[in-house]
Every structure is written in C-alpha cells, then in structure tokens.
C-alpha cells in the first residue's frame, strides 16, 4: 500500500486527544485519541450505540465536547466551530437533498448557502452534472431520481464547496452492491483530488475500501489500523470476523 505510506507523512486534518462527551452520567464518547491524515479514507466503525454519531457531531461542530482536545482542519472544536463548518462537507444517513426541488436548484441552493458565487455555482453545476451523467435530469425534481443517483448527487453536493474533509454518515444504506461500488468510485475520485474522507459504515466490504479503520466499542476506540493489519492482529480472514470479535465484548445495548 504505497498510498498509505504517503498519507502517513501528510499533516493531520483531524486530531483528537482524550476527547470525551458526557450526557449527564452517561459517557457517550470515552477518551478517544487518534489522528486522520490529509487525503486519507478513514473508516469509522462500531455497532449501533457505540458513540460514532456523537463523535462525528463533535468533529462537525454540532456538539461541544465535555473534555479533551481536538482540531478539525486546523481549527479547535471548542472555539472555532464556525470556521470548521466552512471547511467540511457532510452527508447524513438520511437522504438529505430537497425532494421538491430540481437537481439544478438543489445544487444552486447548497452552493449558495456555502457562499459560492453565481459563476462558481454555474461552473460547478455543469461539471457535476457531466461527471454524474445527469445532464438531462437537471430540470427534474430530485424526488423522481432512483435512490442510487440521489446518493451520488448528495455526495457531490457535499463536496461542492471543495472542503478539506467530508464526513459521510452511513452513506450507502439501502442500495445494491453495484451502486455501492459506483458510489465508492466517486469517493476515490474525490480522495484523489486531496479531500479527506471520514466515513462510518456497517458494510464490511466497504470497510475494506478504507485506508485505515477505527473500531469503536462502548464509546472507546478498541482498534485502529489498516484493514490488512487488523485482520492479521485478530487472526481473522475477513473484516466481518474482526468486527464480530471486537463488538462481542460490548456492554452497551444497541438502541
């Protein structure tokens, strides 16, 4: 993996040290520490209720940590959440473009709220429609597109403003393996342009596509390495087995 070696020499774009989030007496995220390097595709895995979403919300500036330290794109998650927001993209597990707007209107809207100029929006729209082969659908309501296309569009909109990092929260829920594979092609394309990808997933075949993976259990990070090294470490022949081995020890019930 020559790719990986390159990444490891890159500066970190996300780094956190002893980061915790408590809700009352419940510790959702428990002292996590790691770094994500620029240009990496970083898989963030864990069972439901392990604390992935809470951690991700802290990195996105949606939630202020209880203790610890973290920077995203060079900005502090306690103080500079507004600056962080300018430098990240986000795609949630729910499909989240406006269904009653057309493809072009959605692009214009999201470009607009990220502060792109009209000229930039026009260029980006053409480029994006071309890349996704959606030229003929530009004036159609998003509602009428098949789910796979919606998700590709959603991802492209999330990186429209050329963020340093894009957070993908279970981006491929409910689509078939072929569409999922195509979706990952898009992720690789984006990664090639230097965008760092931070992705949570439940599909272990997707985990294999990542440069490095972290495994979260009960709010803490129990393992972090390349897929190959993790398989070696747990003497398992698939990521499924690694995941099972780790998640088995979880005390928290999934919600």
């Amino acid at each position: 993996m020559t790719d990986l070696i390159n990444h490891m020499n890159n500066p970190p774009v996300i780094s956190c040290k002893d980061l915790s989030k408590k809700f009352g007496s419940f510790t959702a995220v428990d002292n996590i520490s790691f770094e994500v390097k620029a240009g990496e595709i970083f898989g963030f895995l864990g069972a439901n209720g392990a604390g992935k979403t809470t951690a991700m919300r802290m990195f996105c500036g949606l939630s202020i940590p209880t203790s610890g330290a973290a920077t995203v794109a060079g900005f502090d998650v306690f103080k500079d959440t507004e600056k962080i927001k300018k430098n990240i993209g986000y795609m949630s597990q729910k499909f989240s473009l406006y269904e009653d707007l057309t493809v072009a209107e959605n692009i214009t809207f999201f470009g607009g709220i990220y502060g792109l100029s009209n000229k930039q929006i026009k260029e980006k729209t053409e480029e994006l429609l071309g890349r996704l082969h959606l030229e003929n659908q530009a004036k159609k309501l998003v509602r009428s597109l098949p789910l796979g296309w919606k998700q590709k569009l959603s991802f492209s909109v999330a990186i429209l403003h050329q963020p340093k990092i894009v957070f993908l929260d279970e981006p491929t829920g409910g689509v078939d393996p072929v569409t999922r594979r195509q979706f990952w092609d898009l992720i690789y394309e984006a990664s090639d342009t230097g965008v760092t990808i931070f992705v949570t997933t439940h599909y272990m075949d997707e985990a294999e596509y990542c440069n490095r993976i972290s495994m979260m259990v009960d709010g803490a990070i129990k393992a972090l390495d390349t897929p190959a090294n993790l398989k070696k470490q747990f003497s398992a022949d698939s990521m499924d087995a690694v995941f099972y081995e780790l998640a088995r020890g979880a005390k928290r019930k999934a919600d």
Binding site: L62, E82, K86, K94, L97, F110, I113
Partner: peptide, 14 residues
C-alpha cells in the same frame, strides 16, 4: 423529519 436540518446546521449558514 427529512434530515435536511442536519445538513443546514453543519453548513456555515447560521
């Protein structure tokens, strides 16, 4: 309900 609020909140739009 549609999840678009989350996207808006992650954006720099206040």
């Amino acid at each position: 309900e549609k999840g678009t609020m989350e996207i808006l909140l992650v954006s720099p739009f206040r």
